[in-house]
């Protein structure tokens, strides 16, 4: 079995109201960062999985992300896998 470090990023889907993102964006703009736009606030989750190979690790991460880490109605997720020594 191999071990992988997994980084999952969960973000509000495009078109879904993200009031946290809007509030952060307003505050930044008010603070003079006029070049900042389209702020989205999500979640970042890091964990380690054991799997035969990268493909089966990916399947497991998809399952975990669909089942609990994200709510598919309003959020989408992406992830990266890093083999651990």
């Amino acid at each position: 079995m191999k071990r992988f470090s997994v980084d999952v990023t969960v973000l509000p889907k495009d078109g879904v109201l993200d009031i946290q993102g809007k509030a952060v964006e307003r505050t930044l703009k008010r603070g003079g960062y006029s070049a900042v736009d389209d702020v989205r606030v999500g979640r970042f989750i890091r964990f380690v999985v054991e799997a035969e190979d990268e493909a089966s690790a990916g399947t497991l991460v998809d399952s975990v992300s669909d089942d609990l880490l994200s709510n598919g109605l309003i959020e989408s997720y992406s992830y990266t896998l890093e083999p651990l020594p």
Partner: peptide
Amino acid sequence: TEARLLPGTLMPNNNL
């Protein structure tokens, strides 16, 4: 809603 026994979801209030 999280258990999908009811449809939809509850999001943060729009005035935060």
